[in-house]
């Protein structure tokens, strides 16, 4: 029984509208299409949800209010009142990743959060932005972030490089966490789908497992968007309050 598995095929970027400017390939791809859809869906929920501003909210308005309050409370609990001025950024980030993950779960869809370059670009923006906020608010005093309080001088020689390294590694862990979750989840779904398709009646077993994994992926999709947003909040808290 030949088993042909190509579970990573779903992550291939295909150009829909080929376009070249000079040496650069700026084609409109399936990845770009899904990003556009995600932005449109999020915008639609927020715009339609706030259009009527009914006292008793309808379905879409409830969804918008739920997301708004969820992110608002998250920032309040982790950063405090000073964090509210960064609310638009974190709300956008959370909704974009959430709908990227959820749209990727639609069969024959495409998950752009499963591309390392997409997640790394978002993590790099968070990292650079948070560092700039820290420097802007504290000036040179920001460097005291890397020096733990109440530690003997001899240990500082060891601890400061570790703190510095753990700070610099943040964009990588932040991006790889989201990327690896999406990659592993979708690959797992595709592998069990391949089993189900290739072994006949016995294939009902892997199919059932696939359905269970799908629910796990649904949980992971929401959870990873939450984790990305709350870690952004925690980094922001570090930059604003310095320990």
């Amino acid at each position: 029984m030949a088993l042909k598995l190509e579970p990573l095929e779903q992550f291939v970027i295909k150009p829909i509208v080929p376009l070249h400017i000079g040496k650069f390939d700026v084609s409109f791809t399936n990845s770009a299409l899904l990003m556009t859809i995600a932005v449109l869906v999020v915008s639609a929920i927020v715009v339609i949800g706030t259009r009527r501003e009914a006292l008793v909210p309808g379905r879409i308005q409830s969804l918008g209010e739920l997301a708004y309050e969820f992110v608002g409370n998250m920032i309040d609990e982790t950063v405090g009142a000073e964090g509210q001025r960064y609310f638009p950024f974190i709300f956008t980030l959370f909704m974009f990743i959430l709908f990227g993950n959820l749209l990727g779960l639609i069969p024959f869809g495409y998950s752009f959060t499963g591309q390392i370059i997409v997640t790394f670009a978002m993590a790099a923006v968070v990292f650079i932005g948070v560092t700039l906020i820290g420097i802007w608010r504290h000036g040179w005093h920001f460097l005291s972030f890397f020096v733990p309080h109440g530690v003997p001088f001899v240990l500082l020689v060891l601890l400061v490089p570790i703190e510095l390294l753990s700070y610099l590694i943040r964009p990588f862990t932040l991006s790889i966490r989201l990327f690896a979750n999406m990659l592993a989840g979708h690959t797992m779904l595709a592998i069990f789908g391949g089993f189900a398709a290739s072994i006949g009646v016995l294939g009902l077993l892997p199919l059932g497992l696939d359905i269970l994994i799908f629910f796990l992926e649904l949980l992971v999709a929401v959870l990873q968007a939450y984790v990305f947003a709350i870690l952004t909040c925690l980094y922001l808290n570090d930059a604003i309050h310095l320990h």
Partner: peptide, 25 residues
Amino acid sequence: AFLGFALAEATGLFGLAIAFLILFV
């Protein structure tokens, strides 16, 4: 707890992703 679950799961998935990359790329 769910935040901890997500963080703990991600570390294992790094390894799983490497395994997939070795096998299928």
